[in-house]
Design a protein around this nucleic acid. Structure first.
Length: 742
DNA sequence: GAGCACTGC
């Protein structure tokens, strides 16, 4: 059994006595919610005027470009700057008032005495900013560095900046960060905030993470695929590094410092983490939140969009000022609710206060996203319609009311032995921890209210936390990385083991790409592919481009395909104009060459225009500037890797699309389909009938053979990112030589 | 003819 210790913190349990608001104007319709006292949300009253300052994820802090940051990394800022004395004093005062401060000594004792410590801290406890500083100041980390992992880049960079300020230094000195395309660190860096993916990458070059004496895994409850890979590897690294001196034998291992691991999490999964690390000690620290009153509905609400609208107007007409945040599963529901609210708002009496509706989802152009951060005009209530993006990634100020539909979209990989699995993206119920997180969004600045559009019974029936990514993602990329570490996915000690089907599917994919042989051993080709920061199928295309003489083109295309945002905007209102703009870039062979046309045009604009000119051009073409500039970062990184690998990234095939398609086919062997007599497409290596996605330039076209970037199951199995390829090109790929295709 | 949560190297 794990020992459990509780730290003192500012906490006071809160009884909910508030009676619910009454419906006046919407009398005819039943109130969708009832008052329910609720203690599953640990509501804490904060001292006046002190909010959660440990994380500032609001907006995007101006980040240096990759180039600038490299400079910074080189120069470093080792000296302590004499900042404004009073400002520094107030920063130190804020630090002292954080809930975690009172438990500092007890916490350090635990960390000193144990190899692994599990720290469960609620929002606002200050654990993420303070614990690394405590460890540094206590000397526990010795000469090694302290790594703090984060699932998101913006968190890693902004936390580092905050902690550097608390240490009265500039970021990149004592406190630094390292995320993809952006690094601020120097020889003096002792605390480094990194993305979990970055540390996994670092493992490939330093399998024992020997530069670090302490690794803190933050937000462990999110259980990203990369966090899970780290949790597994840290466990074995610690076994090696902390073994008794005589067991280590002679050589480099004997000289290694022991490794301390701190797992920080926000949920009740403590036991599970503890069990995984041989019953490691669990420590709890209270958070700081304003009380949130939670209401559930009396009966379930099948039409959650309509229920959300009714609830919003009840709040709007009956409740004091304060902005409303509504959680919805996706863009489609957001757009529909947006329309309904606007329609209904027009029918309100003239003397009622105004409403501003702000949609918020990842695919929204940045200009419209920014709207949610500007305060509503006088006598106006802001209503934000958001996806999960507002649950963890961004914090919106001014929210007093949360309406929670209880739904989200979840991506899940359906594995197949043939390796031709596909993603589903379906609406499903959220989890308890997600519901608590959503409710908590109402209590950031003062007391808040959360209206759940589901019954209390439904809430109780929800799973505690989401299934970890490792159980619902494609694993080919991770499998390849692990192969490089000499590890086998099948045998590793994971907190949650991946499905056998998912492993089989990933093995098949890597085998067909030539990354492993029929003995499951890593090949030279596989090692080259792993060096490229790309999904294996795209990495294979880059390697193939070398022989095809079109590395320049393939890197341009692959960079856009692996950027995190979409290339084309497609807003409902201006669909026609967007389609018209897109036609200019269209290439007869399909989407991949179309992307290349866009990139080429963009590069001309980059050469002749400044940043605002670029943005203007993108807007006019309905192109996503963010995607294109991210693609440029990826392109530069890929070119660098090519130089290291001795590949000439300049080799170009000009306007001939054949070499480009040939390289792509190498990577997309499993992602090919042939036209059937009835006009449908059937997977070449799998059993599915697929449709060309409506967003594709080849939608409606009947071509004999296609390759595609991905399959996604929504209302049908759709192929996205589609190109028409001559059958003989597919037949050329060695895997098919015996199959008599062509 | 029809649509797309989030993140990472």
């Amino acid at each position: 059994m794990a020992k459990i210790a509780a730290l003192k913190g500012v906490s006071r349990s809160h009884k909910i006595s508030d009676s619910g608001p009454h419906s006046k104007r919407l009398k005819k319709r039943e109130r969708p919610w009832v008052d329910v006292s609720d203690d599953e949300l640990h509501v804490k009253r904060a001292k006046k005027g002190t909010g959660d300052r440990s994380k500032n994820l609001n907006g995007s802090p101006s980040k240096p470009s990759a180039l600038e940051s490299k400079k910074k990394a080189k120069i470093g800022h080792p000296s302590r700057h004499l900042a404004n004395g009073t400002k520094q004093a107030s920063i130190q005062e804020q630090r002292r008032e954080l809930p975690i401060t009172s438990g500092k000594d007890a916490l350090l004792d635990e960390i000193r005495d144990n190899d692994v410590t599990i720290l469960i801290g609620e929002t606002g406890s200050g654990k993420t900013t303070q614990v690394p500083q405590y460890i540094l100041e206590s000397g526990i980390s010795g000469k090694g560095m302290i790594a703090v992992t984060q699932p998101r880049k913006v968190a890693a960079t902004s936390l580092a900046t905050r902690v550097a300020t608390e240490q009265n230094t500039s970021v990149g000195g004592l406190v630094g960060y390292s995320v993809r395309f952006d690094e601020a660190s120097s020889e003096d860096t002792r605390i480094k905030y990194v993305t979990d993916g970055m540390l996994v990458r670092e493992l490939l070059g330093d399998t024992l993470l020997s530069r670090y004496s302490v690794v803190i895994v933050d937000e462990a409850h999110e259980r990203t695929l990369r966090t899970d890979l780290l949790l597994t590897n840290l466990k074995s690294i610690q076994k090696t590094r902390n073994a008794p001196a005589d067991a280590k034998g002679k050589g480099s291992v004997a000289k290694l410092n022991p490794l301390k691991i701190v797992i920080m999490s926000a949920t009740l999964d403590a036991e599970k983490f503890s069990k995984f690390y041989d019953n490691a000690k669990v420590i709890y620290v209270k958070g700081r939140q304003h009380p949130v009153t939670i209401y559930h509905t009396a009966i379930s609400q099948p039409d959650f969009v309509d229920a959300a609208m009714r609830t919003f107007f009840q709040i709007h007409t009956d409740q004091p000022p304060g902005d409303v945040l509504i959680f919805l599963p996706g863009q489609e529901d957001i757009e529909s609710l947006d329309k309904s609210i606007k329609l209904y708002a027009d029918r309100l009496p003239k003397d009622s206060s105004g409403i501003v509706v702000c949609p918020m989802y990842a695919a929204l152009p940045p200009g419209q996203q920014a709207k949610i951060f500007s305060p509503a005009p006088q006598n106006t209530r802001k209503c934000i319609l958001a996806t999960n993006i507002a649950e963890t990634s961004i914090t919106i100020p001014g929210i007093k009311y949360v309406i929670d539909t209880g739904k989200c979209k979840e991506k899940r990989y359906i594995a197949r032995d043939s390796g031709t699995g596909f993603d589903t993206l379906l609406t499903k119920d959220i989890t308890k921890s997600s519901a608590m997180q959503r409710a908590g969004r109402a209590g950031r600045e003062s007391i808040g209210f959360c209206f759940r559009l589901y019954t209390e019974e439904s809430f109780k029936a929800l799973p505690d936390s989401a299934e970890p990514e490792i159980r619902r993602c494609a694993l080919s990329s991770s499998l390849l990385q692990l192969k490089c570490l000499g590890q086998d996915l099948e045998q590793l000690d994971f907190m949650d083991k991946p499905d056998w089907e998912a492993i089989a599917s990933a093995l098949k994919t890597l085998y067909l790409l030539g990354a492993i042989d029929n003995q499951k051993h890593l090949t030279k080709l596989g090692r080259d592919m792993a060096v490229l920061p790309l999904e294996p199928h795209l990495a294979r295309a880059v390697v193939a481009s070398q022989e095809c003489g079109c590395t320049l083109e393939i890197i341009d295309i692959v960079s856009v395909l692996s950027a995190s945002s979409k290339l084309f905007f497609d807003s409902t209102d201006e669909r026609e104009a967007a389609a018209e703009a897109r036609r200019k870039f269209r290439h007869s062979s399909g989407d991949h060459m179309t992307i290349l046309n866009v990139v080429r045009s963009y590069q001309e604009i980059v050469a002749s225009e400044n940043k605002s000119g670029r943005k203007e051009w993108c807007k006019k073409q309905f192109l996503n500037d963010r995607c294109l500039s991210e693609a440029r970062d990826i392109r530069d990184q890929l070119r660098e890797v090519c130089v290291r690998m001795g590949v000439d990234w300049r080799s170009s095939c000009g306007d001939d699309e054949q070499p480009v398609l040939r390289s792509l086919v190498r990577g997309l062997v499993q992602q090919a389909a042939f036209l059937q007599p009835d006009g449908s497409y059937k997977q070449l290596m799998g059993p599915s009938i697929v449709k060309i996605h409506p967003s594709s330039s080849l939608c409606d076209k009947k071509v004999p053979a296609i390759i595609y970037d991905e399959l996604v199951y929504t209302s049908h199995i759709y192929a996205r990112g589609v190109s028409s390829v001559p059958r003989k090109l597919i037949a050329e790929v060695s895997v098919f030589k015996n199959k008599n295709i062509g």
